[in-house]
Write a protein that binds this DNA or RNA. Structure first.
Lengths: 207, 207, 207, 207
DNA sequence: CATGAATGAGACTTCATTCAT
DNA sequence: TATGAATGAAGTCTCATTCAT
């Protein structure tokens, strides 16, 4: 019960912890946190069950450590995004959509948000942590871009959060359909990106 | 030999399974399928542990029964939707967005998709069942509306699935943020509906 | 826990109790006392579970009542046997073997000893009751016959209990093989009876 | 989350399964398979409940493993018996009776047949296995001896199976009386052996 | 550092028994 | 009498965690 979830997570030295976290991510994603057995994770990391406990105090700590590790690069990338793109907001939005589409198509990448969502009912701090560090940051970054576009006269002046939802929502629901519900892909990433940007920029209605 | 106690009082047995399913939905949603104890569900239904097994063979069967019960009305509503709206596709899309927004804002309603997603890794058939009966149906219904709009000259001729994603994605990601990650609502449903329709119909870019 | 097992067993009136005991014997024999469910017995007696408890206080009482009922006629028949046969001991032994062979071939009849044996580790009183009322009585009856035969110069003067074992043992082991282990019969009852008597009377060794 | 205790001390793991089977045999014999709790067996083996499951998948598997282990030496001994004794069939029969009497007098030895019989209604394969590997083998061995004796002119030419029943039946019924019904011994093993052989060889009737 | 045997709390499930009707 | 819904103790089995080696 260590609810604190800060930037520095206790961990012993060497490469082992990372290998264990890799294994944990794979097993948690495959079976879910509750069903995953510590022994499964140990086996996936080619270690004995006991050895896992040399690096992590408990299964819960393993989860926390994993979330931390996975979130860090995303968070910093998101922070960079906003500033980088204000010069050409349209191009920046295009880049976001195409990058995010490709990332979310990757099961290894989508594993973390998926895991966070699945453990959220039980680990409120993890949910809150992710919301703050990832979701709110992403909305913030998109908002900055949108405002820049509005200021530059290229974007209509509408609710930035709604814009963020129109950018991330379609990507997210598609990832869920594919990775969680096991749906077949019906269009290539490229076509999805193009269609997404097209509708987002031009709208659905004939003018 | 075994002590044994009798029933505290008796109620109309006919409604029992439904009461249990109600309790199960609440408890599963609150804690997740794995963490939920049958005894929790029994307590929520004001029954003893053992009584649950008079109506359902196992915890898994409880889950399956629940999903089936919850999915049935959604599936039939979706089937109706497509035909109903082809006369005025714009109004129909508006109606879908406003209805779906309100439904997904309701935790009781959102509980089922959420539960399905959380058990999907373990219960592939449930995932497949939901995908077929709900997701594919919804996409189909939207597609019919969209094609009708294209035929009538009101909608641009683009990929219908992308349109479906632009309709459902923002609603779904918002519901996740709110119900699963515990985010505060920053805009009223009405404003979200308006903004959604506005961007969807008109696009983001200034003309 | 009523270890007393006397001649008069409490039971309510009517034919029901007997029907229930019939059902109990069938189910106990089929599955064993522990595995048999009261509901199985009730179903076999075409009654509801609760009704069984109108006639018997518990599953254990059902067992005790059953044993009592089944043992009574055997016990009295055995008592009669000894006196009846002293006139012609050889014929009497022949009769015992042929009667017992036929009785033990009958699964319904063999059910009780079999049941007694299976519950003996748990219900010592039942074991003791059966031993006293049936086994010891049978040995006693055979002993009387044997001594009469010795007195009459037809039987050799050997240990009567050993004689009893040579009479009952082969029958019993055959019944076990057939009814419990499910062995096929390789000889008709008549041939078994004849062979049994032949060896018992004449011995195995050539003279 | 789960508290968890570690091992109290560690022993040579190699012998563990056998120790558990020893404990299982004792407890199964004492209480019967159904009534025996895995925890009882664990305690008898000086282990915790959980440890039993490190070596056996289930209580049933424990039973099966036990039967197999116990049957193996009996089966091979029986196979040897027939060939060994054809030179002097009378002596061989004498040896069988005296050996079997002593074996069946030993509760530890009689435990297995007794257990097999008690679980036979529920585990048909075990019953069949025992019948084939032990009962049929024993009959076969005796039959070989008997035929050899007939060929050598020492035994009368009668049904070999009946002879087998006259050899094993008295021993078996005596073991049941003593170990299961708790009867007192009224004659020493030696006297029982002598009387058995006497009647078997010479017959009951005066000549 | 690493192993894996061992522990025991706890979950699911069964079923003898009771009791309102 | 009869029914069958309801109860809850108890048993099997799992698995996070510990610790002797």
């Amino acid at each position: 019960m260590r609810p604190a979830l800060g930037p520095k997570f206790r961990r012993r030295a060497g490469a082992r912890p990372d290998e264990i976290l890799d294994a944990a991510l794979a097993v948690f994603t495959d079976k879910g946190f509750e069903v995953a057995r510590v022994e499964d994770i140990a086996a996936a990391a080619k270690l004995s069950k006991g050895a896992v406990y040399l690096y992590f105090d408990s299964k819960e700590e393993l989860l926390r450590g994993l979330i931390e590790r996975e979130i860090a690069p995303i968070a910093s990338r998101l922070a960079a995004l906003a500033n980088a793109g204000t010069a050409d907001p349209k191009a920046a939005v295009r880049l976001i959509i195409s990058t995010a589409t490709q990332l979310l198509d990757n099961p290894r990448i989508f594993a973390t948000p998926r895991l966070v969502l699945s453990v959220a009912p039980r680990f409120k701090e993890i949910a809150a942590f992710y919301r703050r560090r990832v979701v709110d940051e992403a909305i913030g970054a998109i908002s900055v871009l949108h405002r820049a576009g509005v200021a530059g006269g290229v974007f209509r002046d509408i609710d930035s959060e709604a814009v963020a939802r129109m950018i991330m929502g379609p990507l997210f629901i598609q990832a869920m359909r594919k990775h969680v519900l096991g749906a077949e892909e019906t269009a290539s990433p490229e076509r999805r990106i193009d269609a997404h940007i097209d509708i987002l920029f031009e709208g659905l209605v004939v003018r």
